[in-house]
Simulated assay, not measured.
Amino acid sequence: MRFVPSLALATGLALTPAFAHADSIRTHWEQYKAGRAFRHLSMDGQKALGDIFKAHDLLAAGNTDAAIPALYDASKRLEAADKAGVKFNAAESALHTAPQHAPTAGHTPSATPADWVPVGGEFIVSDTLAPEKKASVASANAQLKAGETEQAAQTMQVVGEDATFIVALAPLAATQGAVNRATVFTEGRQAKDALAALDDALNGLVFVTEDFAATALPAPKASAKTPK
């Protein structure tokens, strides 16, 4: 595979030792891999998932009032994700579930078609990966959970080809319904019920392989204006 034009390649070889050039090529490849992994994700969907996690943490800590703005933002961002069109319609039973995140025991995937939005992802690595790279992967996954995609890509540059990316899909209508219930419960100071509703949203996520996402998802459109 050629990563740079032939002229630039020849110049690089002439001016730098072969091993240095190889390191440079590897660096560019790792950067490409880290960035390419996110091209299927919905920006609004990622932010909505981050809002859901934030509201969940606040409710669990007893900060009920502080969770309300995060829930409002999640609802607006899910609506924006719907309008942006980064979604596809399929039955859960037709999704190619990533083996690293198989459905929970006893769960029967629905055969009813639904709209799915790619709201996040996770890097998976082997147990034999070097400890420092495992630490980078853990950091990148935490950044993805917070919706910090660019930071996650930078963190993953040191891992590169040693990681597999899987995409988290959210059933749009069911997730919106869960967030709406959580908002009503939170406004009514019923934190326990609000947490249960957000658990429903998070438990409804389905992880699929990046290859499946590449074939199922349309090209992203311009994102609607949503809260920062």
Rank of each mutant, 00 (worst) to 15 (best):
N203K: 07
V158C: 14
A98T: 15
K145S: 12
P131Y: 06
A91H: 03
A61D: 06
L129Q: 08
A173V: 15
A37Y: 06
I124A: 15
L59G: 09
A111W: 10
A182M: 06
A18S: 07
K192Q: 14
A170T: 14
D115W: 14
K87E: 07
T175E: 01
Q151D: 11
G188S: 13
Q151F: 04
L71K: 00
L198D: 01
P17H: 08
Q154S: 14
H40T: 15
S110W: 08
S6D: 05
S110H: 05
A214K: 12
A173Y: 01
F165S: 02
Y32S: 07
K225Y: 08
H28M: 11
A146H: 03
G35L: 14
D211Y: 04
K225Q: 10
A170I: 13
H96D: 04
I166M: 14
T112K: 11
W29G: 09
A174G: 05
I52W: 03
A191S: 06
L217P: 02
Y72E: 09
A84M: 06
E92K: 11
G62E: 05
G35F: 15
A84R: 03
Q100V: 15
A222P: 00
L15E: 01
D44H: 05
F88Y: 04
A196N: 02
L7W: 08
A111V: 15
A8H: 12
L59N: 03
A146Q: 11
F123R: 00
Y32G: 10
R26I: 15
K228H: 12
S93D: 03
A98Y: 00
K134T: 12
A70R: 00
A201M: 04
V158T: 15
L202E: 04
H101E: 07
V4I: 06
S75R: 08
A74Y: 04
L78A: 12
